[in-house]
Computed example of a mutant assay.
Amino acid sequence: MRWFLTVLGVLFGVIVFLFLDYSLPSRQTVRITDAYNRLTDIGANAIFYASPDTGTVQNAQGQRDVRFINTARANGKPYVYRNEDTGWIWPPYFKYDSSNLQAEATDMQSSAASPQWVSITSYGWRISWASIYPNAISMRPVAGPDVRPFNWPAVLILLVLGALLFLIWRMWNQFRERTIDPAVRSADEAWDRMDARADAARDHIAAETREAQGRLSRWWAGIRGR
């Protein structure tokens, strides 16, 4: 039973980590190389795109006109963002300015010869083989490729979650101390009393049995002595 609870706890921890890793905002310093729209096939990976009710139109063939932002990192490797409104769905970034953000990205394009570095805040993962892209939330210019703005939104969210978990843990401890522990003690005491009564009943039955055996032995001895 213990190994099952351990495995369950590990799986729960992995799920929570992946959920937070996808949902929390992250920041990368990149150089924007292109900003464009593209008809994109939405299929099994639809969960990693915005809901259609946020304003993005999807045609009968399952294609959606999605805004993309191509970037290059300081090491020269490409990194592609999508730019979609989130609306009121999860994660709750309440983003409705994807058009303005696309205009900013177009204005901040630069070449490798004359780079303009930008810090882009986004959430999500980049998985190339599954056509999954992080969703850009905001951007602002920075002085150079080594500038790493402090990711205070993620820290603030983690602090709030930590405080909520601590509050839930304290409430659970109080509930356990006031309700569960007394019930467990009462059940243990009742079980001990039942066990004691069972032992007493067994002793009584054993004594009665020995006494009956003694009477039977004496009776049989009396018969044999006749």
Rank of each mutant, 00 (worst) to 15 (best):
P25T: 11
L156F: 06
D181R: 15
N151I: 01
W152L: 02
T54D: 02
V16T: 13
A212D: 04
N37H: 01
V118K: 01
N59K: 02
I180W: 13
A46N: 05
D199S: 14
L164T: 07
G62R: 03
T54V: 13
A72P: 01
D53F: 04
A72E: 15
Y96M: 09
H204K: 14
A113W: 03
Q61T: 07
G43L: 00
R82A: 11
P182Y: 05
W172D: 00
M171N: 09
R38N: 08
D21C: 01
A143H: 06
D199H: 15
K95Y: 03
W219I: 09
A212E: 05
T106L: 11
P149A: 13
L39W: 05
V118Q: 06
G162C: 03
T86L: 03
G43M: 00
L164Q: 08
F17I: 10
P91T: 00
V80M: 14
A221C: 01
D21F: 07
A163E: 05
M171I: 03
D188G: 06
P145V: 13
A112K: 13
S217V: 11
D85C: 12
D195Q: 12
S98C: 07
F94K: 07
W90H: 02
D199V: 13
L5R: 11
G87Q: 04
M194L: 15
D41T: 10
L216R: 13
V16G: 00
R170Y: 08
Q109E: 13
R67A: 11
I223T: 08
G76E: 03
P115E: 09
P141S: 10
E208C: 13
P52K: 08
V118A: 06
R224S: 12
I89T: 12
P25V: 05
R31S: 01
G225Q: 10
I47E: 08
